[in-house]
């Protein structure tokens, strides 16, 4: 049986809200240690992996490992109507493993709304072990998420693709659209401690811009974001969620390749 409880204004829900423009259904695995969510966008271009340890929830109990396909779009839609201080309880039982129950309790505890959400069938993906994969990556950029968001905002003025390339002591974002082009150079400053650009080998990736803007939304939930690039490999964008938590979100974005 699984039971987890959270307040409406929790980070978990904010994260779900932020990923909804990319995905509507997700594979959610729960164990005694916490919750993992994996989802791929409808076009099969981006992949999201979210990890939230059990202690981040107001209440968390899972006595048996569970894996389920959840229409998170429908779930978030229902939760949106709840009072902002309301408490949300999500339950799945072993006896009837075809749906989950989401209950919303008002702050005064005088009103409870429950709805049953049918589970969906989804493929599970075996992604390579990420820390091992990233050791082989050519370049990593740790930067404040406000910088990343600003760069994505600049890029959103151009409609098309973005090339992210390593340059001497930094990286370059270059976008070419119908109305012109945009060039952002982001360098390693001499003193700042919250920027760390490490390049093992030169690399350049071409990526679909619209996904970058979705990624920027989630990085708003964290101070720092890390981008990792490697030739012919997906761009990895990872960030911790919140300040003192071990929750983290990782995006993988497939590059454009020579056709």
């Amino acid at each position: 049986m699984l039971e987890l409880k959270l307040v409406k204004e929790s980070l978990f829900l904010n994260v779900l809200e932020a990923i909804l423009d990319l995905v509507a259904v997700a594979s959610v695995s729960c164990s005694s240690t916490g919750l993992k969510l994996q989802a791929m966008d409808a076009k099969g271009v981006a992949f999201i992996s979210l990890l939230i340890p059990a202690k981040e929830f107001q209440f968390y109990h899972c006595d048996k490992d569970l894996s389920m396909g959840i229409a998170i779009g429908d779930m978030v839609e229902a939760i949106r109507s709840a009072d902002k201080d309301g408490t949300i309880t999500i339950k799945a039982s072993d006896e009837n493993f075809r749906n989950i129950t989401v209950s919303i309790e008002s702050p005064e505890c005088n009103e409870t709304t429950s709805f049953s959400l049918l589970l969906v069938t989804l493929k599970r993906f075996c992604i390579p072990e990420l820390q091992g994969l990233l050791k082989k990556y050519d370049a990593c950029v740790q930067m404040p998420s406000v910088d990343f968001m600003r760069i994505c905002k600049y890029l959103s003025n151009v409609d098309g693709d973005v090339d992210i390339s390593t340059i001497d002591k930094g990286i370059r974002f270059f976008a070419l659209g119908k109305c012109g082009c945009l060039n952002v150079k982001y360098m390693q400053p001499e003193k700042a401690t919250d920027i760390d650009i490490s390049v093992q080998a030169p690399v350049s990736l071409t990526l679909d811009l619209k996904y970058m803007n979705s990624f920027a939304k989630v990085s708003a939930l964290s101070n720092q974001v890390k981008l990792c690039l490697s030739k012919g490999q997906p761009l990895v964008v990872q960030c911790k969620i919140g300040q003192k938590t071990k929750s983290r979100i990782i995006y993988l974005l497939a590059p454009k390749i020579k056709g």
């Binding site: 076009k43 992949f47 493929k123 993906f125 075996c126 693709d161 997906p234 993988l252 390749i257 056709g259």
Partner: peptide, 14 residues
């Protein structure tokens, strides 16, 4: 000309 690769090309399914 560049074409979009699929993310599934980078990992297997089960």
């Amino acid at each position: 000309v560049r074409k979009q690769s699929q993310i599934t090309a980078f990992f297997s399914t089960s």
